[in-house]
Design a protein around this nucleic acid. Structure first.
Lengths: 206, 206
DNA sequence: AGTTACATACATCCGTGTATGTATTTCCAG
DNA sequence: CTGGAAATACATACACGGATGTATGTAACT
């Protein structure tokens, strides 16, 4: 019952999609390839045809999926009228709003944030950390630009502001995802970030 | 070769200690009871004598170990001369310093933060989330007290300040633990928290 | 015809849980 | 205080399922 190339690509995507859902629901380690295959409506044979093994499947998921961190960079406009700092503020608020309404991104971020297995899945971890490093570097550059334009008021500096931004962002997302999404990510997140950015600027809020 | 009660307690502690190290190094799911027993210098028989199963062992670890969140409450003094907000600031700086120098706490916090397995280890998760909820509630109360005494300047509120505090704290610790402790937690963390608290107060920094 | 895209079947191992063995201790009667 | 029974603190051995990986079959596509 061989399928056409298009159909094969469809099953491949179906396997990835099923894996994404199950990994998020049950965790990476306790989800079996058999379950993934069943969820996708195929057998383990299909899974092993498209992917060498479980780690390979997870890596493919990471490469294929829309990562929240890449969203950040995509949403960071270079010529915002409010300058680099305004661009960062708009970016983070937009990114939170997108994450709040996109289940797929939520699942992916959960996997990245909650990944166990530092040894066996070292390849996965490498991919993940290098990616996060790259994003953090870009954000640091943006904060330095903001400082250069005098948008960061003392005693904040480009470094401390970038740290606070980064930690605040990771913290809010982890809290929201890990504990059942019990608050309104987009609104409460945006509120705190607006206050935070007005602190960076050193002035009274708008 | 039965041991005396004191020796038995020693092996129990040895098993817990070995489990702590291995869980931190390899993740909860991929660490086997056999490995834990070997690391502790005993056999799986000893493990099963002291603990009903793996989940039970993990729960025992959580109950036995010094939790970072409990540190927070323990370090929160009720009558700081700088008022509730000053007490919170001193508390978080002390807690970060303690975490930075205590490997045991680092390992425990990693396990709590990175726990996979929402389904199979539901008891562990319940324990963890209920504990974190309790801590967050206490911190919220402290921030409300600070606001009542006029220590939180507009536009910050007790709620937004507590959110920012919580997210900043989780963010900095997760970043530090997950990516190889590549910065000075105590100093950079304290620096940012000091800036953050001066923002809460609405005034210029000390 | 040869390759592709799977399904099926099988071998194997690994981890768990449990049952059993056993040397000590602890406890208690005498 | 002492001898022995019972309980303790493990080690060892075993049974079992479950997951992985691989080998093989096979029908459709190219």
């Amino acid at each position: 019952m061989r399928r056409t190339k298009a159909e094969a690509e469809e099953t491949r995507r179906g396997i990835l999609s099923a894996a994404e859902r199950l990994f998020h629901a049950k965790g990476l380690a306790s989800t079996t390839l058999e379950e993934i295959a069943a969820e996708a409506g195929v057998t383990r044979g299909a899974v092993y045809w498209h992917f060498a093994n479980k780690a390979d499947l997870i890596l493919a998921l990471f490469e294929d999926a829309p990562l929240f961190h890449e969203d950040l960079l995509a949403l960071l406009s270079d010529d915002d009228p409010a300058g680099p700092l305004g661009a960062l503020e708009a970016m983070v608020i937009a990114a939170l709003a997108r994450l709040a309404t996109d289940e797929r991104r939520q699942r992916i971020y959960s996997m990245v944030a909650l990944c166990d297995h530092p040894e066996l899945m070292s390849r996965v971890m490498e991919h993940k950390t290098s990616m996060m490093d790259a994003v953090r570097l870009q954000l640091s550059v943006a904060f330095v630009k903001a400082a250069d334009r005098g948008q960061i008021a003392a005693p904040w500096t480009a470094t401390t502001a970038a740290d606070a931004f980064d930690w605040l962002l990771h913290g809010v997302i982890s809290d929201w995802l890990k504990f059942g999404r019990r608050f309104d990510l987009a609104h409460r997140g945006a509120e705190v970030f607006r206050l935070q950015f007005s602190c960076f600027r050193g002035g009274a809020p708008a």
